[in-house]
């Protein structure tokens, strides 16, 4: 029997809040637990693709080709050393938004493309770009659930409100089944009053669940992409790696 697939978007239009790190690490943690995982890089900067050991400049078929209907998703998906499959991105994805913008039904392109392959996976994780454009809208339309990585500082806090307005629009117009799993505190330094205050206010103001454990700030995350592997491989016993393992356990419990 085919597994029941969950599609989880990891989105926050604020840049630098650890979306890509979360997708790579959480995906690897889920794969460690025996889950079949597909990661989708929806950022033209291709950071996820690079982080998992592929050279975005050398990728022949990417999510760009899939979204424009040139090839099926299965043709562009590649295995990675971390045990997860990846639908890679290249810089060409920057033009995909412009191409899609004039198409009716543009919000459903990713959902349709993933239908071909999602049954083969337990979890599909969507790494969104730091914007609220058509690509992010596609991710929110294709997803069952949403994780919002939150760097616990003021500007990131403000971004959550803007994202939730878009989520409400998507739920109302495109995808009523989309559910916000919660905010995931990233780069968290619980020693600062500001981080704790931001987290408390986000949770209270928006009625959002706070996913646990908080992901601690660590240079190990910054080092991992150089090796083309996730932090679960490059620093197996790092606190950050363990935090993502625990989060993976919570998600599939």
């Amino acid at each position: 029997m085919a597994p029941v697939s969950r599609t989880i978007a990891v989105a926050n239009q604020k840049g630098g809040v650890a979306k890509t790190t979360t997708v790579a690490s959480l995906g690897s943690a889920l794969a460690e637990r025996g889950r079949k995982v597909l990661l989708v890089d929806l950022d033209p900067q291709s950071c996820l693709t690079f982080s998992l050991g592929l050279d975005p400049d050398a990728v022949e078929l990417s999510v760009h080709d899939v979204l424009l209907g040139r090839v099926g998703a299965s043709m562009a998906i590649q295995p990675t050393a971390d045990g997860v499959d990846l639908l890679p991105a290249t810089i060409e994805l920057a033009g995909t938004e412009a191409q899609l913008l004039s198409r009716p039904g543009r919000e459903y392109v990713l959902r349709s493309a993933l239908e071909e392959v999602s049954a083969a996976y337990d979890v599909v994780l969507l790494d969104c770009s730091p914007s609220l454009g058509v690509l992010t809208l596609n991710a929110l339309t294709a997803a069952d659930e949403l994780i919002i990585p939150l760097q616990c500082e003021m500007l990131s806090h403000r971004g959550v409100g803007q994202l939730l307005d878009t989520v409400a629009d998507v739920q109302r117009i495109l995808n009523p089944r989309l559910r916000v799993l919660g905010v995931l505190p990233t780069m968290f330094d619980g020693r600062t009053n500001h981080a704790r205050a931001v987290l408390a206010d986000v949770s209270e103001r928006y009625g959002l669940a706070v996913l646990e454990p908080a992901i601690p700030k660590s240079v190990r995350f910054a080092e991992a992409p150089a090796a083309g592997r996730s932090v679960l491989t490059t620093a197996r016993r790092a606190r950050g790696a363990d935090a993502y393992r625990e989060l993976a356990g919570t998600l599939i419990a």
Binding site: P104, G133, D169, I173
Partner: peptide
């Protein structure tokens, strides 16, 4: 409140609210 400007954020949506 919370109306989508068709030439702003609403331009992203090809589907109108039913």
């Amino acid at each position: 409140p919370h109306r989508l400007d068709p030439q702003g954020r609403g331009a992203l949506f090809s589907v109108t609210e039913q």
